[in-house]
Design a binder for these strands. Structure first.
Lengths: 191, 191
DNA sequence: ACAAGTATACCGTCCAGACGGTATACTAAA
DNA sequence: TTTAGTATACCGTCTGGACGGTATACTTGT
């Protein structure tokens, strides 16, 4: 195998190992040594790929952003429903997608908030952008924002184990959210 | 002043100091020494009130649970709207309560997830209870769950600075959520 | 084609400093 | 006088990261 390809795989293993440690034992246990051990690399090897701890965490967040961005783009290609709410529905489906539920990568968020909240900056920037797209999606901006917040809430409930809906209830939530995100105008008492 | 009262105030200062440190510098900077310094107490003084770090974090979470529980109870006393959705609306208004301290204490959650996810257990238990109340509130359970998730999402967006709606937009979100939580049955295309 | 030279990927050790926690001394209110 | 509350001094452990070294893959001059 090509050397570069191996190196790339090692890098990925390190990222995954870091996420696993966080999920299992909390960010405080995220030490360079532990990550290296789980990934089957020496500490020096880890530091080759990520020159310091912050770089490792940034790597996780960038990975998350990249994966989720791809998931959205993919969902956007699906032809469905009215034009209004198109983007929001893609975002919605992406969060319900395995990639969106890659809690592994999501753990990077926790690591960032632990090590230095400033590391969240790229994520914040992306969220600002997403929020802009959400309100400009042709739906009622307020309802669209609520849908967005509900998706984020679900994501957090999953991450922290805070009574996230599962099974059939989860499907119902998804279905209703999708329907809300297809509503160009609401009737009667709602708005 | 009574000595006990002073001690109680010191305890509170320690909790607040811990929350401030977390918000400003991340959980990794939450060291006993730093907390003591910010609170204007020596390390020994801190350890009198909280025998170890886990106790300090548990204290923050219990404080959050207590404060939020009180806020809900208070909102429940307000007479308004239909019976259905009564509890959810109280939860909703409590979430929007401008008690800045609440956000401070919320930081305890981050500390818990950093130090040891098991410390979240009391919070998880409480959430299960809340979720039960949410679905049994007389509204459509799925819509009620979505509202709950949106509130949690808002809470997280505030906590992490992820494009949380502010100002007029925030008020609109609150108003629409309240209206959704007063809807005993939805019309037309929605359900 | 191939030796010589260079870049890439990774290893193992070491250390200064920070951290949680203990032990003990002090102080002022009751 | 007692003791709740706070201060000071200290210890053992762990951590991030620096560093020097090695082996394998590439590139280049000839």
């Amino acid at each position: 195998m090509k050397k570069q390809a191996i190196a790339q795989a090692t890098r990925q293993r390190l990222l995954v190992a870091a996420a696993q440690i966080i999920q299992a034992q909390g960010t405080e246990s995220l030490t360079l040594e532990a990550v290296a051990l789980v990934a089957g690399v020496s500490k020096g090897g880890l530091l080759y790929h990520f020159p310091n701890k912050a770089a490792l965490i940034t790597g996780m967040i960038e990975g998350l952003l990249h994966a989720f961005g791809l998931a959205i783009e993919q969902e956007l290609m699906l032809v469905e429903g009215p034009v209004a709410g198109r983007w929001l529905r893609a975002y919605l489906r992406a969060t319900f997608t395995p990639a969106g539920q890659q809690l592994e990568l999501t753990a990077g968020l926790l690591a960032a908030v632990a090590a230095d909240p400033a590391l969240l900056e790229p994520l914040r920037a992306r969220y600002e952008l997403w929020q802009q797209l959400v309100v400009a999606d042709g739906l009622d901006p307020t309802l669209a924002t609520i849908i967005r917040l509900a998706l984020d809430g679900l994501w957090m409930a999953d991450l922290l184990g805070l009574a996230a809906p599962i099974g059939a209830q989860r499907d119902l939530v998804k279905t209703l959210l999708l329907r809300l995100a297809s509503t160009t105008h609401m009737q009667g008492e709602l708005i």
